[in-house]
Simulated assay, not measured.
Amino acid sequence: MSDYSSELHIALLAVQRAVILTKRVFNEKAKGTVSKDDKSPVTIGDFGAQALIIKAIKHAFPKDEVVGEEEANTLRENKALSNQIWELVKGTKLDEPSSDAALGGELESEEDMLKAIDQGNSKGGNKGRIWALDPIDGTKGFLRGGQYAVCLALMVDGQVKVGVLGCPNLPVDDKEPLDAKSGEDASDGPGRGVLIGAVEGQGATSRPLGTGTLQNPSAISMRPIQDLKDATFCESVEAGHSSHDDQAEIAKKLGITKPSVRMDSQAKYASIARGAGDVYLRLPTSKTYEEKIWDHAAGDLIVREAGGEVTDVHGNRLDFGVGRTLKNNKGVVAAPKASHNEVVEAVKAVLGSKAS
């Protein structure tokens, strides 16, 4: 039986190194652009972070597979863009040489970078060791200096065993409460940047993001709430990602009166896991849309290890063992364990009334 300590250590270091790259991209290149074409800062950051993380995983665990969001075809066709990303990637390393060496050091060439990106081509499934990677989760949050996350999770035979979220723009203080502006201008100034990790059965931790060796961790847990009307409720910024109207009705049904906190990315999972928020809903906006496993795997484990429960809108656990998507699930409900059933029943009531 593995305690997954090596996997957690490598995942934390790899995400921390990738965050250094994404912050460089934002500070040097994201000047108000909001497109995700092949010249945008998001694409540059996505490809670069994916290359660095897969390099680290394949160095430490060469037989493991990776489900990644990107593939390198675009870069093979656009040499100028590939060169631009390579210049960033080869200059990104941790300050502590031994920590950087644990990740396999730097990629050796631009072609090695492209090969690493393409190693994120696993089809997923319920057999073996498979990592789910989202190099920049929260495209628009990244571009405007709001919330985004670098997300990495290890699944073994379809079960999430290790989860790590690097959230550069969340406050270091785990208990700083969320408010309506938490998802807005939250760029990486002093007192911001956290690295959150969890291993199945071992709880969840938070530590400040650094640039070298890992900072000391602190245990985190969800906030105990006696009455859901006192809860703080998180949802996606984009209405296309989750139905805001339905969520407002659910909040009303539960007696929640505080304004919802809208933020991008799995920073929502991180926020409720450490007690800054309480409930996260992602409601279906389409009958055919399937959530991607890289958008939820790390956050799912972290919330459950912090004392919460995560299911779909029907109350079923998220199934990460059926490919690259959560095709067996619809939507997401994350809440403290003691309150989760009450939230799910409210969700069912509201969504059921819409369908009838």
Rank of each mutant, 00 (worst) to 15 (best):
L13H: 06
A14E: 11
A18K: 04
V19Y: 04
K29G: 01
V34A: 09
V34Y: 07
K36W: 00
D38F: 01
D46L: 06
I54D: 14
I54K: 09
K58M: 14
H59N: 14
A60N: 15
F61W: 12
F61H: 14
P62L: 11
K63R: 14
D64Y: 13
E69W: 11
L75M: 08
R76E: 14
E77I: 02
I85F: 07
W86M: 12
E87K: 15
V89R: 03
G91S: 05
T92F: 05
K93F: 11
S98Y: 09
S99N: 05
D100P: 02
L103G: 03
S109Y: 04
S109H: 03
E111I: 01
D118P: 07
G125W: 08
G125A: 09
W131R: 05
G138V: 10
G138M: 09
K140Y: 07
G141I: 04
G141Q: 03
R144S: 12
G146A: 03
Y148N: 07
Y148M: 07
V164I: 14
C167H: 02
N169M: 01
V172T: 10
V172Y: 00
D174W: 00
K175P: 02
A180T: 10
A180L: 05
G183Y: 05
D185I: 06
G193W: 03
G197K: 12
V199M: 06
T211G: 13
T213F: 07
Q215K: 10
I225W: 01
D227F: 00
A231L: 03
T232V: 13
F233R: 02
S236F: 01
E238A: 08
G240Q: 03
H244K: 11
D246A: 12
A248M: 14
A251W: 00
K252L: 09
T257L: 13
K258E: 14
K258Q: 14
Y269H: 11
L283C: 10
P284V: 09
T288V: 12
I293P: 10
A297D: 06
E305P: 04
E305W: 04
G307W: 09
V310F: 08
V313T: 14
G315A: 01
E342I: 00
A346F: 07
